[in-house]
Nucleic acid binder design. Structure first.
Lengths: 256, 256
DNA sequence: ATCATAGTCGTCTCTCTGACGATAAGCACA
DNA sequence: TGTGCTTATCGTCAGAGAGACGACTATGAT
């Protein structure tokens, strides 16, 4: 009874701060990398952290994530179900909600609930954060999440946990969706797509079986007509991402 | 620069209310049902809504969800990675975070961000909500999410959307995990587990192939020794959920 | 010319699935 | 005491798909 009376009572509610944090992933050189920014003020001054910030009173959560992403990287993002869809092929990244973190002591100053978003982007030029180049970098996730924290300082707040969740989401989601193409430029080859899978999963895949799988899945890849030799070797056919978003049967991660 | 300075500034932040909403699913009779409560006050007075409530200043999000669940149903929940694990076989339900909803106008009175949790429970006695029996019910999701809203009033707030997301999560997650056992009592037969899949997916499965699949997956089912005839017909072997949480290869939803 | 590199096509085997026949073991009746 | 109905369980067979790997192609580098 008391429960039913107090539910959604607008007159007295505990105030929270709500932020968004971004797990921005890309494939650089042959490894999966995450975007980090350096904190310039306490707490965790000097630590690396995920980019993010407060949600404004009049904006939605995905909107806030998009705005922060644009501020940090200049990227435009498409939300997953094509809300404010940027045309395919524009310099757009995939953006989806990851999870929400609200441990009472996760920020020592006050009660902060953070909604984390996962962004998958093609390889980008060196990041800039508010004009200060030294305060942002791409860090290989292998070094951040490895068993030994040999990288030096861990991430600020619970951002190490958030990053781990984001990486795990990306690793499992490319298994049964065509999301790996979000790491590729508009036109790409089968080999480039395979190297994305190899970097994200950290395994080596058989080029012949991979080629058979992705070209044999209807709607996954659309031939764009051209060829390229930018990887060396025999010229490879160029493709763009097809309309299919689900992969059935899925691409299987080896050594399970 | 301004961005970097104002990030996490504790002195001035826009205040939000944070709530948890629960998508509690069970299988009753032969259909997937969700727990709804009737709202006794505006807005949406008289509408059916998902159970939920405010997060208290000193409790975590999952903790708030557990508390609300216990208040509404008397259930104890285990969070997914075994935080405050209740022993298997206790009257515990599966609880996991679903998603967070924060559209600026989702509550007409103020800015509310709601973290939705998904609960999968075995069939329960008739619900009680704060002692008022008439204010809570199990509703078949087919009637709530059907193409024609023939059920009468839709759900309050954006709870129809949240419910749809929760049902979709449950439908896809039983494909590649052993989560379907969360809908079953401690001991259950292969046929009962099959009827869970059939109710959640809304399809008919071949009993022979299903039996081969689940008994052939190591760690999925543990024979408990007994048999039962509570479904009529030939006595069936009783099982308990095995330790395996991931199903590889997955159980395939037909007619994809 | 030769080699190294990467892409593409085929083949073989093994596993798993979907379709379906056959048998087993209870209960409800006449 | 059967007969029929229900559900459980075991088996068989064909086809799809994956992993392993051979073979060939087309470019650039030396």
């Amino acid at each position: 009874m008391i429960v039913a009376m107090s539910r959604y009572d607008p007159s007295a509610f505990p105030p929270f701060a709500v932020t968004v944090d971004l797990v921005v992933l890309t494939v650089r050189d042959h490894s999966l990398c995450a975007l980090l920014v350096r904190r310039g003020e306490p707490p965790f001054q000097g630590y690396w952290a995920l980019p993010g910030g407060f949600v404004r009173p009049d904006e939605g959560l995905a909107e806030a994530a998009s705005r922060e992403l644009a501020e940090e990287t200049g990227l435009r993002a498409h939300s997953a179900p094509g809300h404010d869809a940027v045309g395919p092929g524009a310099a757009g990244a995939h953006l989806e909600q990851l999870a929400t973190y609200g441990h009472p002591q996760r920020d020592p100053r006050m009660r902060v609930v953070s909604v984390a978003y996962l962004v998958l982007a093609p390889d980008l030029p060196t990041p800039r954060a508010g004009g200060d180049a030294s305060s942002a970098r791409w860090a290989p996730v292998g070094e951040l999440l490895g068993d030994n924290p040999a990288d030096g300082v861990p991430l600020a707040f619970d951002h190490g946990l958030i990053l781990a969740d984001g990486v795990e989401r990306a690793r499992s989601k490319i298994e049964y969706s065509s999301l790996a193409t979000a790491f590729c430029p508009t036109e790409f080859t089968v080999g480039e797509l395979r190297r994305v899978y190899e970097a994200v999963w950290g395994v080596a895949l058989d080029p012949r079986n991979f080629h058979r799988k992705v070209t044999g899945t209807p709607g996954f890849l659309l031939p764009s007509g051209g060829t390229t030799t930018r990887q060396g070797g025999r010229p490879a056919q160029l493709f763009t991402a097809g309309g299919a978003t689900v992969l059935n049967p899925p691409m299987l991660r080896p050594e399970s």
